[in-house]
Design a protein around this nucleic acid. Sequence first.
DNA 1: CGAAAATGTTCGGATTTCCGAACATTTAAA
DNA 2: TTTAAATGTTCGGAAATCCGAACATTTTCG
Lengths: 405, 405
Amino acid sequence: MTLRGRHIVLVEDDEIMGGSVHQRLELEGASVTWVKLMGRGLSAIRTPRRPVDAVVCDIRLPDGTGEELYETLCRTSSPPPFLFITGQGGIDQAVRLLRAGAADYVTKPFDMGGFLDRLALILRPEEDAGLPPQTGISAGARRVDALVAEYAAGDHPVLIRGAKGLGKARLARRMHDQSDRRAAPFVERNSYRATGARPALAEAIGAVGEGTLFINGIERLSPRDQGRLFEALTEGAPFRTIASTWPDTEATEGGAVRADLLYLFAAHEVFVPPLSERPEDAVWLAGQFFEVLNGRRAAPLRGLSSHAEAALRAHDWPGNGRELRARLLRAVEAAQGDRVFPSDLFPEIGAESDRFPTLAQAREAAERQQIAAALSRTDGQVGEAAKLLRVSRTTLWEKMQKLGL
Amino acid sequence: MTLRGRHIVLVEDDEIMGGSVHQRLELEGASVTWVKLMGRGLSAIRTPRRPVDAVVCDIRLPDGTGEELYETLCRTSSPPPFLFITGQGGIDQAVRLLRAGAADYVTKPFDMGGFLDRLALILRPEEDAGLPPQTGISAGARRVDALVAEYAAGDHPVLIRGAKGLGKARLARRMHDQSDRRAAPFVERNSYRATGARPALAEAIGAVGEGTLFINGIERLSPRDQGRLFEALTEGAPFRTIASTWPDTEATEGGAVRADLLYLFAAHEVFVPPLSERPEDAVWLAGQFFEVLNGRRAAPLRGLSSHAEAALRAHDWPGNGRELRARLLRAVEAAQGDRVFPSDLFPEIGAESDRFPTLAQAREAAERQQIAAALSRTDGQVGEAAKLLRVSRTTLWEKMQKLGL
DNA sequence: CGAAAATGTTCGGATTTCCGAACATTTAAA
DNA sequence: TTTAAATGTTCGGAAATCCGAACATTTTCG
């Protein structure tokens, strides 16, 4: 697979490094947006000229870190895959990023060929062709798959609940593929994507015909859009509706779904348990990923060591499947022996975990908390919150962007 | 009493108001330091050219508030009396200052004659000539007075414990006045006063002769000074030593007293209960103040109403005697009828108490907390704390000043 | 007791933050 | 459906913050 025709956002302040990567990516046929500041990166990714396929991002930036950029995006949207460029000593940071669901990282200095290979790897779509249409092997995963099969035969709305990285979009797609509507369009409306990147609901409804409309993140729909959806569903719309929600505390508090709309979905829900509750699925999924990835190695590995499997079971998987896939990618690439070992999967073991927050971090945390409290108090009214906080509307808006609120 | 020869610090940014007050105070013979910023005020009060007798301070300043200035000073020292200038609508703020122990306030617009009278009132020393040498009438107060009389006859060190505003310095003075050493000097070393305003311990020891050395705030002595004092006490120094301590949580954590020094005082302690634990003393003391202050009115009042007395009993007196005296000053001045009523003593009743902290306030609170944590972690080592917090030593020092740490 | 280390403190320059004005877009209300 | 209100967002200038260098003073340690 080539990079030709892809849109890459490059966030790198170093003139030489950035120039090299920029030039080489364009030689490969990619379209590159090069920015030098975290703030600029935020804008470029949130409101891009065209959809962003991947982000290549340095860790250290003049106005913050790549980590902050990524996590800020995660709070209000679903960012495109990130490939981080880290220097020596930044490994603990990069590993945290993997845990949070970032795609991968490379360590300076690196050869351009290896870098391009890694970038090409993460550009591949989330639903790998090599994986079977199955959530897992645990009892909980089998219940999910049974419900998916059952609901695929129906026409009623379905709500998929579960944390990020659990493949809710893939479940919706499978439900569509196993239904009578499989020949009609499958249209996704991702509410987590930045404003510029997502179509209006009306546009999505216009495109779906008698197919399946998938609303990713129903709690993020505006009240007006929720009204439109409710109308469509109660007036016999020809398409089938599947929605997902991410039971994140902030989302629940901030973006309530009107009760009557929720009522339409209440009878048919699919809850996807987190990987931490089904460790045998983590091992199974890792095995699936291993088969696919190992097949690409010039010198194939023999498998996962038993200790690696034990470590997979013991991990708490805050990033769920996305984190698992990223770790497998790195492990298969980095393995020195003939098998994958725990230290290949979890290189951060031994890294310092106890860090004293800096003054800037403490200040930011307090600002984030206070702004959130003010927004809560004003029911999301930004202008009123600005008055309460005694800052200008501009200042509040910029801080909200910076802090990911 | 005139203002002649007194040193007044004026903190007022308004050119016209400041110019008027400055000119009139100098006409009255006072020496005036006029600053326009809270930060400048901090410096002028902490390291003055000569000791500060009083501060005249506006509430609203370009770089903060008079309230912040006062409270910042209170955290690390015992500020001179403050007379606040407040505009309309600032009454709740001024009342909070009274509660915290500030001397008084005037409301714009005011006539200069009344302003000067009020300033003259607060310049009078804390121990008013009109008050009897007595702590109060409650059982607890009588125990304190009995101990003072008993210890006055001895030569052993004495420790006076109690919160600010309870007259610990007056108790020490009374102990001296009732002792055989009354003809010799009484020298006070106030550890709470700003660095520039307090003499070195060695200087105080040199001046006391066979008199009484009063260490106000023994926990604030440096380890070296504690060593000097210990040596003096164990090697038969000719003077008598009385010390006070303020059982404030911050002081206890920050400035521990070495155990062997504390041992020398342990056998003779006087604990002064807070006014909140002896409400009848609050009423008695208010009565004493009333007699003194009422005598100065052109049209004397008949007394405190029974409801006023009830309100005095009910109040929790966070500022203890200092707050009580300030409230009586205002009440006797402001009384409209022939008696003092609750609303004269507690004008803030009805004022809005629930305020949402601004973003700057939240940020400051977080900074204060984080800096305190860092200092705690580094055992007071400022340079190490700066590294931990990832700020420069200068920045940390300035923030410590601003935040009162 | 003297030297080293740390604190106390100031100042000017660089950097960052904050803001009002302005305009486009979206949402809410009439 | 139209209008008003609010949000989304940018930009340049003013104000505030942060810092290193520097020097005086105090504290600590050998």
